[in-house]
Design a protein around this nucleic acid. Sequence first.
DNA 1: TGACTCATGTAAGAAGTTACATGATTCT
DNA 2: AGAATCATGTAACTTCTTACATGAGTCA
Lengths: 171, 171
Amino acid sequence: MSLKHGLIGLLAREGPQTGYQLTKAFDRSVNFVWHAVHGQIYPELARLVEAGFIRQTGTGPRGSKRYEATPEGVAELRRWITDVEPTRGTRSETLLRTFFVYLVDPDAAEAFFRREAEEYRRELAVLEGFAAERVTKPSERASALTVDSGVRVLKARIKWAESAADEASGW
Amino acid sequence: MSLKHGLIGLLAREGPQTGYQLTKAFDRSVNFVWHAVHGQIYPELARLVEAGFIRQTGTGPRGSKRYEATPEGVAELRRWITDVEPTRGTRSETLLRTFFVYLVDPDAAEAFFRREAEEYRRELAVLEGFAAERVTKPSERASALTVDSGVRVLKARIKWAESAADEASGW
DNA sequence: TGACTCATGTAAGAAGTTACATGATTCT
DNA sequence: AGAATCATGTAACTTCTTACATGAGTCA
């Protein structure tokens, strides 16, 4: 359901592209908010053409196919953003482990939380790189908001992981 | 992969239970970090018995089946917590919508972010109810850490959503 | 020519959702 | 007796992951 909108959106945002380029573009941008790989992308593109939300505009070198978003596709994307309630329902492996972390010894628990904190700091460094980029276009203002969310949430998670590590070390 | 550990963990944590009770227990506790429904739980319990990670201890009224975690199951859970790197890879419908939110008009964008903030506040209220409960057992100290993570992250998200709404209203 | 990147596709399987189906027990 | 809850299961379907398969163009 969401991959569909991610693909229409990338075509609307960055202009006509091949499936291969979309796969790369996913890796670079949307990937931080919605991960997808080519094994899922190619079949979905075929379904989107079928549904009329995107259109193949031609073929390029090495049998590549160029797609663009149709007005119907962009309309569907707008409708999805404003009218469809996002699916909630957290699934966090880290928090599931945390829920049962009392089963391991304090040293292992502390190490687990320190590793989490490190990982979050690595991710934060990447996002702060994005945040330093200059923002001009409307689409960049929108993606800057997703980066800002990531930065705020990661900072909260880092503080949490360090405080959890401190607590677990005393168990 | 994770549902498996969630089920072993609940049996280890709360003692022998039926599939039905596990489904209810999931709804009340783990559900906030890992959502699952009975259609997924019953087949998984059968697989866990097969694998030797849990054991059926007897039958109760109305054909119910009671399970308990085996030592092998608890060992597997410990191994998973300390030795297996958590799968990262965010999937947030809210952030995917945010990435493309420049396509809708400023009023709709602002409304979208205000609704998000409201939803987060509702979730925060639930978690703060949990946070007010008294903590004594080790398992409760662990679950208090998951609640603390939720509280910190939700507060960050609320601030983000309000600031995004303010910004979008000026577009 | 051999290695690498570009480019698309499918197949098998795991994981997750939703709905259907059934029967036992309890409560009013 | 009828409604509600307890209790388990499966079937159909969608989504996602991983791996296999293949071929075209580029560059050293």
